[in-house]
Nucleic acid binder design. Sequence first.
DNA 1: TGAACTTTTTGATAAATGTCAAAACGTAAG
DNA 2: CTTACGTTTTGACATTTATCAAAAAGTTCA
Lengths: 183, 183
Amino acid sequence: MNFNQLDNLVPLDLISKIFELMEQHSFPKNHLLHEKGTVCKHIYLIHKGLARTFFYKHGKDITVHLASEGEVITAVDSIISLKKSRYNVELLEDSEVLSISYKTLQDLLSQYPEYEKYVRLVLERMYTEGADRIEEFLFYSAKERYENLIRTRPQLIQRVNLGHIASYLGMTQETLSRIRKMP
Amino acid sequence: MNFNQLDNLVPLDLISKIFELMEQHSFPKNHLLHEKGTVCKHIYLIHKGLARTFFYKHGKDITVHLASEGEVITAVDSIISLKKSRYNVELLEDSEVLSISYKTLQDLLSQYPEYEKYVRLVLERMYTEGADRIEEFLFYSAKERYENLIRTRPQLIQRVNLGHIASYLGMTQETLSRIRKMP
DNA sequence: TGAACTTTTTGATAAATGTCAAAACGTAAG
DNA sequence: CTTACGTTTTGACATTTATCAAAAAGTTCA
């Protein structure tokens, strides 16, 4: 979900209210915005830079989500349920990040319930984006998934390790490397 | 998302208001609740029976979603965007179904905006369920995906064709058949 | 610059999954 | 009961993807 495209979905006064409540941070590459095993309380908006959500399976790390400028990232398995998260959220570049706690956002919505509708619209869109990603795995081969990523988010390929791209696409780094040199 | 477990998330008066607005239908097995190529306007709650969302890839049909009693089904690629859907929604058994148009639901929320919050809670939960399904494909082998399904929704295996189960899990029917007889 | 480290590629091989065709099985309808 | 039809299994084989090890290429920093 890219928050730069939010203008036509959400009124500007809500956007500015949220921005007022956000804190600005600068963090170096490799900084962990969130660490696994803890409850995640914040949602992060990437202003400048790049972040990923990942976790470990049999010692290997697998990238679940990638967020660049204008996009939002958090530990989805924790922020709503308040359970301890399996995920780490890590910066892949020196970054400027805006953060808001989920609690603060909920308080804002309690105070101005007229905004609930817009949060719903954003969530609806996020849900359909998730459904599209599921479709990717049901329908497309490793090569097709890579081609789809190039088409939809070409900048990522330049900025993210191919190892991370590979696990994000559900394949090994070696497979991705071979796919990339196929005709 | 199972609406029978909704009681602790959503107040009863909202549930009953929605039920008042829903229409009840009985349809036979194989009836299409929604046909691909058209805009999907309704959300369906399965009261008795079973339904699936599917579409065609290279002539083969692929099941994207399965819904049994208490669960909701619709063409997610259409209902929010109002684009023509790629999906069919089909009944797998003679079924009793409650339907509400998305428009009616929106009108209800406009009239009682205090309910928006609960729709948000439901959407948040649906979103995390989607995230879990993506994780399935990133982390688990065909065999593990099948075992997870047995664990989480054992009734489905009894009631749904193995061919549909297989495509829902992202594998061929033959692979599923072999997995089932592995030790 | 060059040593140390990380990332990417390559090769050989193995394992998982897909394809196609046919047989076996199950079930509904005459 | 028996035919017809849809579903599931089986077998032989092909293709895709993973694994492991090593080399090559790229990056960082003293």
